[in-house]
Simulated scan of single mutants.
Amino acid sequence: MPPIDLTLVLDCAYDDLMTDKDLHSLALQINRSYSVQRVAKCAAAGGLVLTSYGDRLDAQMQRVCPHADRWQRFRREQASYTTLFPREKLVYLSADAEDVLETLEPDTVYVIGALVDRNHHKNLTHQRATELGIRTAQLPIRSFVATSHRRVLTVNHVVEILTHWCGHRDWQQAFLNAIPQRKLTAPQPASTAVGEETTEEQQHDNDDEGSSI
């Protein structure tokens, strides 16, 4: 399938809420996210954009992926996503949103909160997006699969889910392809659909090194 005309944004406006260890974990997740986009047969046409990009995250990025300035369809912006893209095209992904995604829309910018907070700041990304008047939505994960953990996905898992959907237009396969088997249980009926938190990191995943670029 041809690339769908959408952009994936990682909202990095949470540096002050994270430790250096958290930021290192986030840098690993960004590295893996780019790897997914780079090798995908059908990735988001608009690529991967980091917004509100600050010095503390940059220091960790230099450690994890010092050649990121050579990456294709990837850019880092100090400005907020709200100033870089028209607000009517923005959709902020959050487990706390009422709306559930049924499909990914062309010419749309999907925002993922780049926050590794280990449950210290629940509902924060949704609250900030709502205050800014940004549309929010949750992934339809429980319409298609059930997880054995609480509703937490790393940033790179979400990027992989969205990227896989772009290539196959199949939510179930996207979830099964991206979510580690240890986190899955038996499927549940579609009527139980809820969203998936996109901004926190599972403690079990802390030692993942990511792909070398």
Rank of each mutant, 00 (worst) to 15 (best):
M1I: 10
M1H: 11
P2G: 09
P2C: 06
P2L: 12
I4Y: 04
D5F: 08
T7W: 09
C12W: 04
A13W: 00
A13S: 11
Y14D: 08
D15I: 03
D16T: 07
L17T: 03
L17P: 02
K21A: 13
K21H: 10
L23D: 05
S35E: 10
Q37K: 11
A40W: 03
K41V: 09
K41Q: 08
G46Q: 10
G47K: 08
T51V: 07
G54L: 12
D55G: 07
L57V: 00
M61I: 14
M61G: 08
V64H: 12
C65T: 10
A68K: 14
D69F: 14
R70N: 13
W71H: 05
R75C: 11
Q78A: 10
S80Q: 00
T82N: 02
L84R: 00
F85V: 11
R87L: 08
E88D: 15
L93A: 09
D96C: 09
D99V: 09
V100L: 14
E102K: 12
E105G: 00
P106K: 07
D107M: 03
D107F: 05
V109G: 05
V111W: 01
A114Q: 06
A114M: 12
V116C: 07
D117E: 14
R118E: 14
N119S: 11
N119H: 09
N119M: 10
K122Q: 11
K122S: 11
T125L: 03
H126S: 07
R128Y: 00
R128K: 12
A129S: 10
L132F: 01
L132E: 11
G133F: 02
G133R: 01
R135L: 10
R135Y: 02
A137K: 08
L139W: 03
P140H: 06
F144W: 11
T147F: 02
T147W: 02
R151S: 14
L153N: 03
T154W: 12
V155W: 01
V155E: 00
N156R: 01
N156M: 03
H157E: 15
V158P: 02
V159S: 07
E160V: 00
W165P: 00
G167F: 01
R169A: 06
R169F: 04
R169Y: 02
D170R: 04
D170Y: 07
W171V: 11
A174Y: 05
N177S: 06
N177A: 03
A178S: 15
I179R: 06
K183L: 15
P187N: 04
Q188D: 09
A190C: 03
A190H: 07
E196V: 14
T198I: 13
T199M: 09
E200S: 12
E201A: 13
E201G: 12
Q202S: 15
D205N: 14
N206G: 04
N206V: 13
S211N: 09
S212C: 05
S212F: 12
S212P: 01
S212Y: 08
I213N: 12
